Amino acid sequence: MSVAVSMLRQVGTGASAPRDRRATRDWVLRQLYEWIFSGDIEPGLPLSETDLAQRVGVSRQPIREALRQLESDGLIEEAAGNGARAVVVFEERHIAEIYSIRAALEAVSFRAACSRITEEQLADLERVQAELEGRLRHGAPDPGKYDAAPDFRFHEIVAEAAGMPQLHAFLVNVWIKTWALLNQVQLAGTYPNEREIADSYRDRRLLLDLLRERDAERAAAAVVTHVNRRKTQLTAAIESGRGGFRLPSVASPGGRAAVFA
């Protein structure tokens, strides 16, 4: 499992900051991931190193290092042309770019995995898939309560099976951006609803079957269809105004606008 995805799974532990410098840096990064993904740090508002250091209870240095990592992840960006940074407010261009890149990379991953995936990895995928399908018995989650970690773990097992470390690294970067985007719309109750969740899990069941059959071309085509369907459903949910989430207006100052109505 990648360091970034592992960190995202460890947020919310409530542990105090460790003394080791590297461990402190990673701990601070986990805290900032948590606040970004929970919406505690509001998208679009400038970030202050001093304020964050006081809130976390550390010096500014590990905050500065964590912000550089978050900028590299594509989760924060320059806010006002004055060096200040803010959590990215996702726009339509982000959705189109993220999902287009993800579809292309996932196709390579699934195609390569078909000839290399082990029975143990297929069993791991079955366990993740069973967990996902079991959720459907509980209906749609409340806004902000959908845990996307197993969804991404499914795709990461495939990437690990593909045996391409650079591809895996590229995918982790795209998954993190996707996760951040989905959290913004999930907090508003915009996406996904129960039908969209069921569609996603149905797609993954087909993907698992094709991996078992080791049908590389059909698996590659199916994962592209899966990712593109998610993009279409996400865009339609936002455009419908469900949950009050709206994309920033192109005409707004700096390309920004409130994302919640």
Rank of each mutant, 00 (worst) to 15 (best):
P165C: 05
R25L: 11
L67I: 15
A96Y: 09
I98N: 12
R19P: 00
A251R: 13
R202T: 12
D203R: 08
D73K: 03
R55T: 10
T178F: 11
S109K: 03
A216C: 06
F110T: 06
Q186T: 11
V108S: 00
L45W: 08
A159C: 09
E133V: 01
L182Q: 14
D26N: 07
S240N: 12
S38E: 10
R204S: 00
I95Q: 15
I157P: 00
P253D: 11
V174K: 04
R60S: 11
G83Q: 13
S115K: 06
G44V: 02
P141K: 13
D151A: 03
I197E: 13
L52Q: 02
Q184N: 05
R212F: 09
S252C: 05
Q10D: 05
A257F: 06
L70V: 11
R30I: 04
E91P: 07
A261T: 08
A251G: 08
I95L: 15
R212Y: 09
E120W: 01
V224Y: 08
E133Q: 08
L52Y: 04
E92K: 11
R230F: 07
Q186G: 15
H155D: 06
I41N: 02
S249K: 08
A113N: 00
L181A: 13
P62R: 04
Q121A: 11
E156N: 00
A53Q: 03
V89K: 14
V174R: 07
F152T: 03
E196A: 13
A4W: 06
A222M: 08
G83R: 11
L125Y: 05
H168T: 02
F152A: 05
T232N: 12
E65V: 04
A219G: 15
E160V: 14
G243I: 05
P150L: 01
A261P: 14
G241A: 05
R93T: 12
V174Q: 10
R30E: 10
R9Q: 09
N183C: 09
A149V: 09
P43A: 02
V5L: 13
I238E: 12
S200V: 01
V224I: 15
A15T: 13
H138P: 02
I41Q: 03
E133M: 03
A162T: 10
E97P: 00
L47D: 06
D203G: 02
A221H: 14
S115C: 01
A80F: 04
L45E: 10
V58Q: 07
